[in-house]
């Protein structure tokens, strides 16, 4: 089964990390990615830019282009992983590994694991 793992954090908490803290967290996460990759479980991964860089195209009575992310929430979607795991428990285990560096950096967010209904690695 394919799962998407979405990373949510309150952006101000991410902003409050020093460059060194962020670098340390990213280094630890790289280690986790390498491990999951070696196990054949990891697909594309992305870290999104902060939400001020987002734009939303919405349709009300007509299509409008709005600055900012889709939802104004306390925590923002900041990135995602695509993983291939046998079971939900495997996916949870993978996610657990991905939470550790975040916790270590003092981030208070969450990872959401959602199975994919359809997946196209590239192209149609």
């Amino acid at each position: 089964m394919y799962y998407a793992i979405f990373a949510y954090e309150p952006e101000p908490a991410v902003d409050a990390l020093s460059k060194e803290q962020d670098a340390a967290m990213m280094a630890e996460l790289a280690e986790v990615r390498r491990k999951l990759s070696a196990e054949g479980k990891l697909g594309p991964v992305a870290r999104l830019m902060p939400t001020p860089a987002a734009t939303t195209v919405r349709r009300a009575t007509e299509t409008v282009v709005l600055d900012g992310p889709f939802a104004e929430t306390k925590e923002q979607l900041l990135g995602f992983y695509i993983v291939n795991c046998e079971t939900l428990q495997d996916a949870i285990d993978a996610a657990q590994q991905l939470t550790a560096p975040r916790r270590a950096a003092g981030l208070p967010g969450a990872l959401e694991i959602r199975p994919l209904a359809a997946y196209f690695p590239a192209g149609a």
């Binding site: 309150p10 101000p12 908490a13 902003d15 409050a16 990390l17 803290q21 916790r103 270590a104 950096a105 003092g106 981030l107 208070p108």
Partner: peptide, 18 residues
């Protein structure tokens, strides 16, 4: 990071709003 570390980060982040 120890407990105090993450609390520090959280307090810094919350400060302007609070």
């Amino acid at each position: 990071m120890n407990d105090i570390g993450w609390i520090d980060a959280a307090l810094t982040a919350a400060r302007p709003q609070a």
